[in-house]
């Protein structure tokens, strides 16, 4: 396993995820972008565990996965609410913080 490659992969994946969050107005795709960023961090964590020979890295990934799952659940709940009130899941009309 070569660390340099892992770093490049992780960076690119995280960038793609961030692009997904910033460039798309569909809330679903934005959430998927967040998941991509989390995945990138997970990959890096596992690689770090290999580098140091620690098992704890994998456990940490485990916990991150758990939190990601809970977060997706709550996020989708919010999305359902948003659709219920606005009949759209685009972030275009959400301007109540304006001014």
């Amino acid at each position: 396993m070569n660390v340099a490659g892992v770093l490049v992969l992780t960076a690119v994946l995280a960038a793609i995820g961030m692009m997904g969050v910033l460039a798309r107005r569909n809330v679903l795709v934005m959430m998927m972008g967040v998941e991509l960023m989390l995945t990138a961090a997970n990959i890096l964590m596992v690689a770090a565990g290999v580098v140091h020979g620690l098992l704890d890295a994998q456990l940490l990934v485990f916990f991150v996965m758990m939190v990601a799952a809970a977060e997706v659940a709550v996020g989708l709940g919010l999305l359902v609410l948003l659709f219920r009130f606005r009949q759209t899941i685009s972030t275009k009309g959400l301007t109540w913080l304006k001014g």
């Binding site: 070569n2 340099a4 490659g5 770093l7 490049v8």
Partner: peptide, 13 residues
């Protein structure tokens, strides 16, 4: 990019 980055890295774990 990954292939090119891995090339000169000395350590393989």
């Amino acid at each position: 990019g990954v292939a090119w980055a891995s090339h000169g890295w000395p350590t393989h774990y």
